[in-house]
């Protein structure tokens, strides 16, 4: 059904730390790798080794530059995937019932065997979280690795989304954001976690931890400068003579 559940028992989601993310794209690769082999149609690529490669991804990392008025510019890497919104506009626009939000954990999923590939859910999403697979003709989106997090055949430490499991910087956190005592909720409370595009009224579950202020940043300096200093100030011999002679020359 494309009606949203009147309430959800849990709000499983991600908390992404923009202060910690180093922009390595390991989460992008892990996501593509995992979602190529299990749940639903594999994420296809078109012209992968040609001149204009293009493909379906459920997670992408943007990079933004913040230029403060009185300090050096700063780069912020910005991973973006489905935010599993409480008021998911992608669900209610679906004409076939393929798009749905689960009552038990709040995950937004697509039943691919009912998807006609009209693309309206991708239009309704403000975040660009949904991509139509050009090969299968169905809508793909982050499943929060629903085939990992409940999978008892996996070791317990692997029962989290592939992007979270792989992140070498520990910038991605997974948990229940409806439970104020959960680790993710406490992170959001401690670091002032933010919703993306709050004016859209989508009430995203995923939260973003803003970069910490760089108040104690060291003054800008050039790490290579010491190596470029002249090493021999009192050169003798032929080079010394050459230096003195050239210095005397006019112009």
């Amino acid at each position: 059904m494309t009606a949203l559940p009147d309430r959800v028992e849990k709000k499983l989601g991600l908390v992404i730390d923009l202060d910690t993310c180093v922009g390595c794209h390991a989460c992008v690769v892990a996501c593509k790798g995992w979602n190529d082999q299990g749940y639903g149609a594999p994420l296809s690529d078109q012209d992968p080794y040609g001149a204009a490669p293009s493909g379906t991804f459920l997670n992408r990392v943007h990079s933004y530059e913040i230029t403060p008025p009185d300090a050096p510019a700063q780069i912020v890497h910005f991973p973006k995937s489905c935010l599993h919104c409480d008021d998911a506009p992608c669900v209610t626009v679906c004409p076939t019932g393929a798009s749905y939000k689960r009552r038990e954990d709040g995950i937004v999923l697509v039943n691919e065997s009912a998807c006609i590939g009209c693309g309206l859910c991708a239009w309704a999403c403000p975040y660009g979280a949904r991509e139509m697979d050009a090969d299968a003709g169905v809508m793909k989106k982050c499943t929060l690795c629903v085939d990992r997090i409940y999978n008892e055949t996996l070791p317990e430490e692997d029962r989290q989304p592939a992007c979270v499991r792989t992140c070498p910087a520990g910038a991605r956190h997974f948990g229940d954001l409806s439970d104020p005592g959960s680790e993710v909720s406490q992170l959001v409370a401690a670091r002032g976690g933010l919703d993306l595009m709050p004016e859209m009224g989508t009430k995203p579950v995923n939260a973003y931890l803003p970069p910490r202020p760089k108040a104690d940043a060291a003054p800008e300096f050039d790490v290579l400068a010491p190596f470029l200093e002249p090493v021999a100030e009192d050169a003798g011999g032929f080079l010394g003579w050459l230096d003195r002679t050239l210095s005397k020359m006019p112009g």
Binding site: S63, W123, L196
Partner: peptide
Amino acid sequence: SATRLEGGRVRSFAPPHTGSNYLLRE
């Protein structure tokens, strides 16, 4: 509002992919 980044002028520094994708085309 899209990124909630603040503290200065914010601009897109690099897109997530070198080629095009469904979102850009559509």
